[in-house]
Structures are given as C-alpha cells and as structure tokens.
C-alpha cells in the first residue's frame, strides 16, 4: 500500500518529526542490543545480572514498535489487505483513498481517546516502572503515538481532499 497518495511529504514540522522518529528508533534499537548483551556478559563475569535491565528492555521493545508504527504511517507501510488490487475504475480510486484516510483518522482518534482514558487511570493509580520512572510515563507512549498518528492521518486526509477539489477543475490525472 505504498503509493503517492499514502505518503506524507518530507519537510517542515513533519520532516522534523520523521527525523526525531528515525533517531529515536536507532537509539532504542542500539540500547536494546547493548543492554541485552550486557546482561549476558554480566551473568558470566559476575554470575548475576542487573535487575532493571529486563523490564527496561520490555518497555524499549514497546516504544520501538509504537514509534516504528508511527513512521510506518508516514511511509504508507502498514500491513493491509487489498482485494481491489488496482481493478477499480480510475475515477473511484482517489475517492477510495480519501475514504480510507478518513477512516484511519477516526480510528486513530478513537485509540487516542482510549489511550487518554488509560493514561488518566495510570496517573491516578500511581506505581513505578523501570528506572524508577512512574508507570504512566512508560505507558504514556500509547496516547502520544496514537495522537501523532491522528495528526498524520488528518494531514493525509486534507491533502487528498485538496487534491480532489483541485483535480475537479482539470481532467483526472492519476500519478502512477
């Protein structure tokens, strides 16, 4: 499902966000490899590891996955089924894209909402996670990522809508 209609342009705030995502992903993946190997090393040298490494690793995995999914949104790289496989009339195609962006926008907004409710509960309940940081900090990644995702789908949707409005003046020209 990579097509020009599904990708966000690089540049501006979005470009900055993409850059932050990429750096963050590299940093977290490196940290995961280093920490996991360190744990094995410590076990052999000191016959015991550091207790905080394992829980931290598990949250790093979660963060990596969610931030990775956020990047996948800009790149149009989410797993999807496509039964139409380009068999739709060219006139309908851009409208379908618009519909899908609208749905994605609503669905990710719904997830953001649920994430917000969850975060509120976590803050009320308290509790500490890895590195003595509160649990709500570690779980705050859910509403944050879903929120940013909603923003990205809003952009995709409005871009597509603008293109369609402009396209009505010309003859339908589809980028391939």
């Amino acid at each position: 499902m990579t097509g020009p209609d599904n990708q966000l342009p690089a540049g501006g705030i979005l470009g900055l966000l993409d850059l932050v995502e990429e750096k963050l992903l590299c940093l977290m993946l490196t940290a995961m490899i280093v920490l996991a190997c360190l744990q094995i090393f410590l076990r052999y040298v000191y016959s015991g590891g550091l207790l905080w490494i394992d829980p931290l690793l598990r949250y790093l995995v979660l963060w990596c996955g969610l931030v990775g999914a956020l990047s996948a949104t800009s790149q149009g790289k989410h797993i999807a089924l496509d039964l139409t496989a380009g068999r739709l009339p060219p006139a309908i195609e851009p409208w379908l894209t618009l519909l899908i962006h609208l749905f994605s926008l609503l669905a990710s907004a719904g997830l953001t909402w649920a994430g917000g409710l969850f975060l509120r509960g976590e803050i009320e309940a308290g509790g500490a996670g890895p590195l003595a940081l509160p649990l709500w900090f570690w779980n705050g990644i859910f509403p944050l990522v879903f929120g940013l995702m909603t923003m990205k789908y809003l952009l995709l949707f409005s871009m597509q809508a603008r293109k369609l409005l402009a396209g009505n003046n010309h003859t339908n020209c589809r980028a391939s």
Binding site: R43, Y46, S47, G48, G49, L51, D54, P55
Partner: peptide, 25 residues
C-alpha cells in the same frame, strides 16, 4: 550456586542482595 529469582518481588530481591547473591531473573 546460580540463583533464580522471580521478577517484581522486592522482598526476595533485597534478601538475596543481603545474602550476597545476584539472582538471574
């Protein structure tokens, strides 16, 4: 001996530490 300890139990964690044992979780 190489000790195992379950995760998330402060009592056994601090007891094993006092005993000078670094458990494998």
């Amino acid at each position: 001996s190489k000790n195992w300890s379950p995760a998330g139990d402060p009592i056994s964690e601090s007891y094993l530490t006092i005993l000078g044992i670094t458990p494998v979780q």
